[in-house]
Design a protein around this nucleic acid. Sequence first.
DNA 1: TTTTTAATGCAACTTAGTTGCAATAATATT
DNA 2: AATATTATTGCAACTAAGTTGCATTAAAAA
Lengths: 127, 127
Amino acid sequence: MKKTRNTKAKQVILDLITDSNSALTANEIQHSELVACDRVTTYRILDRLQEEGLIHRVVTHDSIVRFARCRTCVDETHHHQHVHFNCQSCQAVLCLENTSPTIQLPAQFTLTEVHITVSGICDRCNA
Amino acid sequence: MKKTRNTKAKQVILDLITDSNSALTANEIQHSELVACDRVTTYRILDRLQEEGLIHRVVTHDSIVRFARCRTCVDETHHHQHVHFNCQSCQAVLCLENTSPTIQLPAQFTLTEVHITVSGICDRCNA
DNA sequence: TTTTTAATGCAACTTAGTTGCAATAATATT
DNA sequence: AATATTATTGCAACTAAGTTGCATTAAAAA
């Protein structure tokens, strides 16, 4: 197991994701003024941050991949028990904590992971 | 509104998806011996079948897009009230009917669509 | 300070999906 | 049944997202 290093680019990207209200795409991260590294490096940093359990991937139904800070991760296997909300007005993707419905599976099916994405209008846009 | 035509390629692809146990990727469809049309045509047919409400897209957490026959679609807005199950053993993606948990959203959030993908082991692989 | 090796930048590549356009073939019209 | 109309197809070329190899750079350990 190799040791992870604390580089400037990595810190900047983690801060960016941490401070963001919405989950961010690799592209949004890449084009932030704060981020100066290469495109490939951005992807590699995102990979590492995931492996370290600091961020998680969110895939919405439109196939867009975003990254969000982990705040209530249950364990290192990263079975996120929260819902992702995709606002159709402001496009933000938010993690809704404390919203884990129990899924009832048919007989003989075993569950290891649940991903729930809800589309609608968020509180800000509804206000 | 233009009229839709019934072509051979379209029928073959619809049959393929209809008869498949698991949801299929565009690639799997394209490389089926039964499908003879161009790659681009396959994509366009998949688009049309969706617009006609005959099939629907399924995106799993690994960003893989698949297509499944619509069987219990509520209305033409295609708000599928069923869960998609992704077997980690045989890789199949199944539509689980009669499994629609109610999602409880925070105040001020409005819901229009829910997508649930569950990973685990399917009944066949568990047998 | 030197050594070690993780992290970076660059070029090139892959995979998924899209667009424009001329040619083809369903379907409607005569 | 023959013709006209236009949806559909194939092809070439393109975009967008993500990956890989490799030489160079820079954290962190010695």
